[in-house]
């Protein structure tokens, strides 16, 4: 029979069971969701898309490891969050970006944005977007030279001679929007836009595959619907109601939805846990805010694309939203609240 006197027991607080999902499995799901878009990037822009992504991932892991090593903190690279940041940062760069440039972008993303604020869960801005913003500020030229779709960039050596093309979004702007929009429609059909056979950043071009990845994350309950749906819906409604250059509302809306980084931003960037609100209500407000700023920047700003900055602006509001949008206290019904307000 069991020797009860010599049991080696631990006594901890309840609960004594845990859900199987953990930080690492969540990050792994995000990586899986990004793979179709990466594969399309390789098909569209060549193997350099893969090497840029790999260099970025290794860079992020290296910076995180180095920072925590130097500061003698417990290592955290095993949670795979640095891998996600690395992939996302590569996705928002042109495929011709220099390897050393992306390593510096990785430094801004991991060290400045994430680790200096305390590591995972503590960053108030999205690391990949800060990395991109830093790179755009540093090298405006190489960050905005877009390869023509289906021209494969060289994996090593100069890509200076490669044909570049305007992105669809840049053709939705300018003095004569009617003319440039007409030429955009000649260049890319709506189907090209949806599938991703367009110029743009390495991983943002294929709306279809990004939506597929987003749906995977929704099914796996890694993200909730509030942020992506509210974000995309806000952009859709505003562009539908206020088309420019004499374009039809629906047509204008579709080119706006599928051009640029909206899908990548809505499903993978704005949903970053640590820089978005924690309540469902707060996430609705946040998603709408992202949509508003994106359209404002695209319509009235000097940049063609507004996804990156609109998410970063709303990141700054996330804390404010969390402070003011609280779940209704259990047991306090609406009529009670009104009475309390009346007093």
């Amino acid at each position: 029979m069991t020797d009860y006197k010599n049991l080696k027991l631990i006594a901890t607080s309840s609960p004594h069971i845990r859900n199987a999902e953990n930080t690492k499995s969540i990050m792994l799901d995000v990586i899986i969701a990004l793979i179709p878009a990466l594969a399309f990037g390789i098909w569209n822009f060549g193997f350099r898309a893969l090497t840029v992504t790999c260099v970025s991932v290794i860079g992020c892991i290296f910076w995180e490891w180095l920072y925590r090593k130097i500061l003698n903190k417990p290592q955290s690279i095993g949670d795979l969050s640095a891998v996600v940041t690395g992939i996302l940062l590569a996705f928002v760069c042109p495929v011709t970006i220099g390897y050393w440039q992306i390593l510096i972008g990785d430094f801004f993303a991991i060290v400045i944005t994430k680790q200096l604020f305390g590591g995972i869960g503590k960053n108030f801005l999205n690391p990949a977007l800060v990395g991109r913003a830093a790179m755009l500020a540093s090298w405006a030229g190489s960050m905005t030279s877009w390869v023509t779709p289906n021209t494969w960039a060289k994996v090593v050596g100069s890509n200076a001679d490669i044909t570049t093309a305007a992105t669809p979004l840049s053709m939705l702007k300018g003095d004569d929007i009617a003319a440039s929009f007409a030429s955009l429609k000649d260049t890319y059909s709506i189907m090209d836009m949806f599938l991703g056979k367009i110029g743009g950043s390495l991983g943002e071009v294929s709306a279809l595959l990004l939506i597929l990845g987003g749906v995977y994350l929704l099914v796996r309950k890694v993200i909730t619907w509030q942020i992506p749906v509210c974000y995309i819906a806000t952009v859709a409604v505003l562009t539908l109601l206020f088309p420019r250059g004499g374009a039809g509302g629906v047509e204008w809306m579709l080119y706006n939805l599928f051009g640029g980084g909206l899908m990548l931003g809505a499903f993978f960037m704005a949903t970053d846990y640590s820089s978005s609100p924690i309540t469902a209500k707060g996430q609705v407000i946040y998603g709408i805010g992202c949509g508003l700023f994106t359209v404002f920047i695209r319509y009235f700003g000097s940049y063609n694309e507004g996804v990156c900055y609109s998410i970063m602006v709303m990141n700054c509001f996330a804390c404010l939203i969390d402070r003011n949008v609280k779940p209704t206290r259990f047991g306090v019904v609406k009529s009670d609240k009104k009475e309390a307000a009346a007093k």
Binding site: I17, R18, I278, R329
Partner: peptide, 23 residues
């Protein structure tokens, strides 16, 4: 059953907020 890990770090995913029956 416990699946404890060393040095747990909150990732602010908000799952606890949507799980709390007391809001």
């Amino acid at each position: 059953e416990e699946q404890t890990i060393e040095n747990p770090q909150c990732i602010r995913c908000g799952r606890c907020v949507s799980a709390c029956p007391m809001h």
